[in-house]
Simulated scan of single mutants.
Amino acid sequence: MLERKQRKHGTEITFVLPADTPPGPVSVVGDFNDWQPGVHVLAPRKDGRRAVTVQLTGRGTHSFRYLAAGDHWFDDEHADSHDGANSRVHT
């Protein structure tokens, strides 16, 4: 799931997943972090879900995927759109 907050210089996107699906560490990897795993790792929230917030500047479309333990890549079914293997978020 994606949560958004408009800010003066862009949009904050919070990437949210259930607490244990999939199990183990998960990071969001996309064009906004040069597709580098481990840069944006989801952390536990008080409500039990996991999340990480990324500041995206300007307007545009960004591609991303999630990377879980065991080299398990997966998409966000709640993304704004998909382009083949990637989820997309529009700012």
Rank of each mutant, 00 (worst) to 15 (best):
L17N: 05
E12M: 03
H40I: 06
A51R: 06
R7S: 08
P37V: 05
G10R: 04
T61K: 07
D31S: 08
D20P: 14
V52L: 04
P37Q: 02
A19Q: 10
K46P: 13
P18D: 08
E3F: 03
T21V: 09
D75N: 12
D34Q: 12
R65W: 01
G30V: 07
Q55N: 12
S87F: 03
N33Y: 05
D76S: 05
G10Y: 01
V26H: 02
H40C: 11
A51F: 07
A69R: 09
D80F: 06
T61Y: 00
H78C: 12
K5R: 12
A79K: 05
V41N: 03
W73D: 11
G10W: 01
V39A: 10
Q36K: 15
S87Q: 08
L2G: 09
S27L: 07
A68L: 11
V41E: 02
D75G: 08
D83K: 14
G84N: 06
P25N: 04
A43C: 08
G24Y: 01
M1S: 15
E77F: 06
F15C: 14
L42Y: 02
G70H: 08
G38V: 13
G84C: 13
F64S: 05
P22W: 00
R59K: 15
T11N: 02
G70Q: 08
K8Y: 09
R59V: 14
A79M: 04
L17A: 04
R45S: 03
A43I: 12
H40Y: 12
E3W: 04
E77C: 09
R88A: 02
H78A: 14
P22Y: 00
D76G: 07
S87T: 14
M1F: 02
T21Q: 05
V28E: 01
Y66M: 04
P18F: 00
G70K: 05
L67V: 11
W35T: 14
G30C: 07
T21F: 03
H78G: 15
D83I: 10
V26N: 00
G70E: 03
N33A: 04
S27I: 14
A79D: 05
N33Q: 11
N33G: 08
V26W: 00
S27G: 15
R49E: 13
R45E: 12
D80P: 15
F32G: 02
K46M: 02
A51G: 14
S87V: 10
H40E: 14
S87H: 01
F15A: 04
A69V: 11
Q55M: 09
P37I: 06
F64M: 10
V54A: 07
V26D: 01
H90V: 15
R88V: 11
I13G: 07
P18I: 05
D76F: 02
H78I: 09
Q6D: 15
G84Q: 09
L2I: 15
D76H: 04
T91Q: 02
K8H: 10
V16K: 05
G30K: 03
G58M: 08
R50E: 08
S81D: 15
E77S: 12
L17G: 06
V29Y: 03
R88Y: 01
Q6F: 09
A51Q: 10
P44W: 00
T57H: 11
V16I: 15
L17T: 13
N86R: 06
Q55R: 10
V28I: 09
P23G: 00
E12G: 05
V52N: 07
R45F: 03
R59D: 14
G24S: 06
